[in-house]
Design a protein around this nucleic acid. Structure first.
Length: 589
RNA sequence: GGUCUCGUAGCUCAGUUGGAUAGAGCAACUGCCUUCUAAGCAGUAGGUCACUGGUUCGAAUCCAGUCGGGAUCACCA
């Protein structure tokens, strides 16, 4: 039983005895004591005043007496207004710390044992990954790791948007102007090469539209009447009809893209257990629509299109099948959701998709609910905010899109420079050095993105992101490196006995002990930011401890070995916490 | 216009189920490396928690409204 539980229990019993009334546990408000007050945990007694019919001070004092008398762990208490501050004996913290030592920290707390599918990334195959994908990837990967640490089985997946008009545009442009260029012949990364032709198409297409508009056509018709658009649409029809030449080109160019993506994912350190391709799933869902029609969940309009009326739920009417019988995006999503449950028998699916699709997922989940699929309750849209630049939203046509590969290159060159300036890695081989630099660069980027609450939109300032000081990934890595440095100096472990703790020592122990409840919270809220903040707090605490405590050169052997062990636990905990963010720790930096 | 969402220091962000004097980092200024890695530590300065009202013993937090930003509302994906 944790000390919090013990105190809550004792407080409840004491209050019941004092005031001879039944008391709900929710009436015992326990929280961490603020640092400016004496004590470790605080009970807020205001909710009890109605029952005690005494002043806040009197109530707190009575309760404090009773708790101190029943719990040997409580060494003292003080009352400030309606706040009962309880001090927990150092011996309790020391015992807890000792019990932590051998292995309890190494295996994860099994709070849940569910099987969850996490979908993230899911890019289009017509251009390289950008900053928005980076946030998506960091989040999806990290949430997966957090859920695993919390005891769930996780299947990481993505659905690759490999078909549609967008890829036909790239294909068409390459056919017209590519002269057979390949990633090999041009030394351009595959995804970037395909993206180059997509941009080329868009430019030429835009020019055609402008000419048509200049000739007197309205904007809307110009979009569909431009010769290039007609050609691209033809190509899409041919693809759907399985035209050999088109399909061959499609396969070739998609494979270029996949090779490019693979390289980016590898650098980012993310991976997937199962891949879905839209080319294989885009026809799914139609039977379910038919079924829904029979059930009366959907309805057909005169032109043959199929809809669902969600006005009663505060939403609109939503199209599910076009009048020509072809499906739309959401039709496919209905089909794939059902398939995934069949394929993997999962307890839930988490869709890591930006908040611009909030409405889409609201509708999707509602439809599945109305269709009677009980699994709808396990569906969750991990909706994250947009990434903006200091200058505003990224825009393709203004060329402000931050490319994922470029971004990582910049981070690496910046990390290389700082590392060189510090000169602490001079004794390492070139290869080892590069490995450390890679960890620092990627760690900085990931931490910068993940420390922000996923739900909130964030501003990505490239200059701040390559800052390695303060609340950053490299700061936490640096603190970890210090703990390892201590362990290299003192490699043996000795039994120590100490009876009292300094303020910082106690804070560190408390922080370490709270690790598993933090993981639980992060899993509950699907929030890597919680792990990031925890890591920073722990690192900062250790850094302060470091500044005014000697470890290796402590005054006596007991303090020395205790602090060495404390350093080790801090380092191990930091490493574990950061691993849940997908951030690796270097041993030196 | 309807719906959703956000508004905390100059900037980027924390702030647990409502609790004590709202916290970090960056930027600015001041100290601290002959002692375990100074990517660090200590300090100064910086706030009408957008605004108004309500609920409450108590509101940055909950409710309503106002103002401001963003997203979304396609036979697109």
């Amino acid at each position: 039983m944790s000390i919090e539980q013990k105190i809550s229990e004792a407080a409840k019993n004491a209050a019941q005895l004092l005031y001879s009334t039944e008391i709900a546990s929710s009436q015992i408000q326990l929280q961490a004591c603020k640092p400016e007050f004496e004590g470790d945990l605080t009970i807020v007694v205001f909710p009890l005043l109605k029952i005690s019919k005494k002043s806040p001070e009197q109530t707190a004092t009575d309760l404090g007496e009773a708790i101190k008398n029943t719990l040997p762990e409580i060494s003292a208490f003080n009352v400030v207004k309606g706040f009962l501050n309880l001090s927990v004996a150092d011996s309790y913290w020391l015992d807890s710390f000792k019990n932590l030592q051998p292995h309890s920290h190494s295996h994860s707390p099994a709070h849940s044992s569910k099987k969850i599918m996490v979908e993230y990334s899911s890019p289009n195959t017509n251009k390289p990954l950008h900053l928005g994908h980076v946030r998506n990837n960091c989040l999806g990967y990290s949430v997966s790791e957090i859920l695993k640490a919390n005891g769930s089985e996780v299947i990481k997946t993505q659905i690759i948007n490999d078909r549609g008009i967008h890829i036909c545009k790239s294909m068409l442009a390459w056919g017209k102007w590519g002269n057979g260029e390949t990633p090999q012949s041009s030394s351009i990364k595959g995804d970037h090469l395909v993206g180059k032709y997509y941009v080329m198409f868009e430019q030429a297409y835009k020019k055609e539209q402008q000419e048509l508009i200049a000739g007197g056509m309205d904007e809307k018709s110009a979009k569909t009447k431009a010769p290039l658009f007609i050609e691209a649409s033809d190509m899409l029809r041919k693809w759907e009809a399985n035209d050999t030449a088109v399909v061959e080109l499609w396969k070739t160019m998609n494979n270029w893209v996949y090779e490019g993506f693979e390289a980016t994912y590898k650098k980012l350190g993310v991976d997937f257990d199962k891949l879905y391709y839209e080319s294989q799933t885009y026809l799914l869902g139609k039977e379910i629509i038919e079924e829904g029609l029979k059930k009366g969940v959907f309805f057909k309009k005169e032109d043959g299109s199929v809809w669902i009326d969600l006005t009663a739920d505060g939403l609109d009417e939503k199209l599910l099948l076009r009048s020509d019988g072809t499906s739309v995006y959401i039709t496919q999503d209905i089909g794939t959701a059902v398939d995934r449950y069949k394929d993997f028998n999962v307890d839930g699916i988490i869709y890591t998709v930006a908040n611009e699709q909030d409405y889409h997922f609201k509708v999707l989940f509602l439809i599945l609910k109305k269709m009677g699929y009980s699994f709808w309750e396990g569906l969750f849209h991990l909706s994250y905010g947009m990434v903006e630049l200091p200058s505003g939203r990224m825009k393709t046509r203004e060329g402000t899109v931050v490319d994922a590969d470029d971004l990582m290159e910049e981070m690496i060159s910046s990390a290389t420079q700082s590392t060189k300036e510090k000169g602490k890695l001079d004794e390492l081989t070139e290869e080892e050095k590069n490995e450390v630099i890679r960890k620092i660069a990627v760690g900085a980027l990931k931490y910068f993105i993940l420390k922000v609450d996923p739900k909130k939109s964030m501003i990505f300032n490239p200059e701040e992101s390559i800052d390695f000081n303060g609340n950053t990934g490299p700061f936490i890595q640096y603190i970890y490196v210090r703990t390892r440095s201590v362990l290299r100096k003192v490699s043996d472990e000795k039994v120590w006995t100490i009876s009292s703790l300094s303020k910082k020592e106690k804070e560190l122990i408390k922080k370490i002990l709270s690790y598993s409840s933090v993981v639980k919270e992060a899993a509950k809220l699907y929030s890597p930011a919680i792990m990031a903040n925890y890591s920073y707090e722990l690192a900062k605490e250790f850094s302060q401890f470091w500044a005014d405590h000697q470890i290796v050169n402590a005054d006596d052997e007991n303090s020395k070995y205790f602090r060495v062990q404390l350093s080790k636990e801090v380092g191990d905990t930091l490493k574990k916490a950061m691993k849940l963010l997908g951030i690796e720790m270097p041993e030196r930096m």
